[in-house]
Design a protein around this nucleic acid. Structure first.
Lengths: 153, 153
DNA sequence: GCGTATTTTATTGCAGGCAATTATATTGCA
DNA sequence: TGCAATATAATTGCCTGCAATAAAATACGC
């Protein structure tokens, strides 16, 4: 039995799963980003952290984690690598000694200029209009937020 | 400078990046799947491999890799873990000794029945109509394929 | 003000991902 | 046939992710 494709199996077929679409698209993005980010000396998650810091400097680890949906188990070693690369500084907050504030070094800040070329390369690789991408992004974010809402239950 | 939000910075803003939407949605999916897959004794990538095998058994590692966009560096240890869990068997092909064929054990095959509950739980968590999900999935797959096409250049 | 609960970060251990390399088998071509 | 090119897995090393736990600081309740 179960030799021929059966309608009952449709929900389990790989190509019918939106999760796999998202999973494989994330890896495809990563592969497109890699050569671009190699030029900046960053991995993709490190690039995300830099994006956060370029928007607002001197941020506690927790805030970065909330924006990126990552915890300290991921961020602590990643931030130490960024510090070793002289892109950020990690300093205990004086008001609240539990917090570690992440701030950009001059090199970290100036890397922003080099990074400006990245989004346009990605746009080109997407081979798609900006408005379509924005619409997709909004849909995916909405789905993500609904999924995250379920987790918190 | 660059204290106030600037229009020139828009392309670098985290919330404007579709890649981050996809990246964070993938992690959200993973977190929703985790408790469901714990009951099957699988991780999410292991579940993907099982989906492939439930569609077609006795598959070389390379074919699994092509379907999932993963290489042997990821699959070899993963498949060894599935073998240790008695869900698959790994055997060298006799026609072509380079290939390792992956086949389901009876336990691996029967796990499919338990897995049928998973997609409907995911659908519920997505809180979204099937037709909307299918439309999104198709868009994301199309984007993924365009990105992968660029990589091959 | 004291002791407990909570918050924040760090650490450990395990499972992906992937680049680079290696080992072995097969193919193809002179 | 013999040798180089190619194909397939496996291995190594590094960087995520995340659960579980620990450690330290702060907040809270009495």
């Amino acid at each position: 039995m179960a030799r021929k494709p059966s309608a009952a199996d449709a929900p389990l077929r790989l190509d019918n799963q939106i999760c796999f679409a998202v999973y494989s698209a994330a890896h495809a993005f990563n592969r497109v980003y890699k050569p671009l980010l190699d030029g900046l000396g960053l991995t993709y998650p490190q690039y995300l952290v830099m994006l956060v810091l370029w928007e607002r400097d001197d941020v506690p680890v927790k805030d970065i984690g909330e924006k990126l949906f990552l915890d300290s188990g991921t961020l602590t070693p990643l931030l130490k690598r960024l510090e070793a690369a002289h892109l950020v500084k990690r300093t205990r907050s004086r008001e609240d000694e539990r917090q570690v504030l992440i701030s950009l070094t001059p090199q970290g800040y100036s890397l922003k200029e080099k990074a400006r070329a990245v989004p346009q390369s990605i746009l080109a690789a997407s081979d798609c209009s900006v408005s379509e991408l924005v619409a997709m992004k909004d849909e995916i974010v909405a789905l993500r937020d609904r999924l995250n809402a379920v987790i918190g239950e």
